[in-house]
Amino acid sequence: MHQSERRSRWLPGGLAALLLVALPSLAPLAAQSVPARKLLASLERVYGQGLRADSIALDGATVLRVRRNDSVLGFAQVRDVMGKDQPITYLVATDTALVLRDIDILVYREAYGGEVAYEAWRKQFRGRDARDSLVVGRQIRGISGATISVNAVTLGVRQAVGQLAEWRRAGRL
């Protein structure tokens, strides 16, 4: 019997520890935006330190022109694509020729499929551009159990590089 008493003391203790871990990370409930620090860290990981950027408004969208000193390093865009029931917020980052330097997952909100944020999966997009067929099962390998997110992000990236290429063709970028 004393064994079960010890266990019943252990359980509330475990729950209390869980709450202690969770409480400091309680963030504003209404936050619907990309954490700015995360976006900056993501851009610096792709392009390096000491970046400057100007934003270009195109057809209601915003493209960041990323530069260091006087040289343009590339273009970046923050976008949303719908997963199963949540938008997935992602970054596409290209060089000046609109070839993808990397993508990143800025906010992932779905219940299953967070594997799209893994570097091993994301790095498949490096060096790709609008001429590639960015399709799951061809140039992009999927991950079991993350099919919806994998398809959504791949579609989103394909649309992003296609849009950038269109603006470039029209002489607007």
């Binding site: 700015a36 851009l43 970046l51 400057r52 950027a53 100007d54 915003t62 960041l64 530069r67």
Partner: peptide, 23 residues
């Protein structure tokens, strides 16, 4: 239409929501 060039640290201070708002 260009906005003036800004340092990225300032960009981070800007609400990043405006970047996502394009979608």
């Amino acid at each position: 239409p260009h906005r003036p060039t800004i340092a990225l640290s300032m960009l981070a201070a800007m609400t990043a929501a405006s970047l996502a708002a394009q979608e």
